[in-house]
Nucleic acid binder design. Structure first.
Lengths: 160, 160
DNA sequence: TGTCAATAGATGCTCTTGCAGTAATTGCGA
DNA sequence: TCGCAATTACTGCAAGAGCATCTATTGACA
């Protein structure tokens, strides 16, 4: 922590790291979003859902599980899945043994669209994000930020 | 790059780095946003604008300059500034010598609100983000991602 | 000096999201 | 087996963001 005369602008390492996360996220996402919409006709949010289902056993997940794996709230997910379902890429099924629940499953068409979209989407992310980092930097960022998704622990309690 | 049987899921370093950026951004922002709204009554977008003006010479910037420094589009900024202006935290002034332009300036009240909000906001970011990284990790992330905001170069042209 | 493309910013429209509240179902405990 | 809190998912409402478009102004060039 270097010294700085302005109390609202402390010079810290983490502030620059945070700014990097903020800008990298926003700039890469904006480019990738436009690209995906142009090529596939649907936004990244759809691809996130399709990819989560693709990776799940039986290509299906309950709404609740989808919520945990994605970065959406429940209410947002309901209508997001509504739209994807209307496009025929997923369908809702009842959950055996729990009539409250809904299982969202990838349709064959959804799987095809996923396969086609995901590969090219990753190419864009590689070009716009990965390509700007050295292998060592990639590794360092991956290691440093793994805790935010790897095991989804609680936020650290106020320790002082 | 390790080998992987699924062509849509190449195992790469940058994919994990990207996932880290995505999750860190979303999770930290959601917490910080709620916190700021509860305590100050306005969202992070407002604080971004106030902070950019605070850091600018004369505590003012043209809309265009604000757009470059922030992560908003022009149309979004117009109405964002509308709201902040309606709350009395900034005001619009004409630009001498260019009647197309508008200069957005921090009001004394806006400056007070900035000072109060920013310090606590940074504490939250430190707790939720910086506190989860070692100093070495903070430095590594800051260095690796500096290119996304430090000098705002064009995205790398398709080089093959 | 007249023309016209470029620039600065605002606006109409639409899509998306989150919060708060609602309805149905489940399962624990008396 | 009855009651009740917890869980699952959906919906009304309103706010926020982007794209395309529009108006006013500027500045370069013939």
């Amino acid at each position: 922590m270097e010294h700085n005369d302005d109390p609202t602008r402390p010079a810290t390492r983490w502030a620059d790291a945070w700014r990097g996360v903020l800008f990298a996220n926003a700039k890469v996402l904006r480019i990738a979003e436009r690209d995906l919409v142009e090529r596939e006709g649907f936004p990244i949010a759809w691809l996130d859902v399709l990819a989560q289902l693709y990776d799940a056993p039986g290509n299906g997940l309950r709404m609740q599980e989808l919520e945990e794996r994605s970065l959406f709230t429940r209410s947002g997910l309901t209508r997001l899945v509504d739209r994807i379902e209307a496009a025929g890429l997923v369908r809702r099924e009842p959950v055996p043994g729990d009539r409250r629940g809904v299982r969202v499953v990838l349709t064959p068409e959804g799987r095809r669209r996923h396969d086609r979209a995901f590969v090219e989407h990753m190419r864009v992310i590689e070009r716009e994000f990965g390509g700007r980092l050295t292998p060592a930097e990639q590794q360092a960022v991956a290691d440093a930020l793994a805790g935010f998704w790897h095991d989804d622990q609680e936020s650290p309690a106020a320790a002082g």
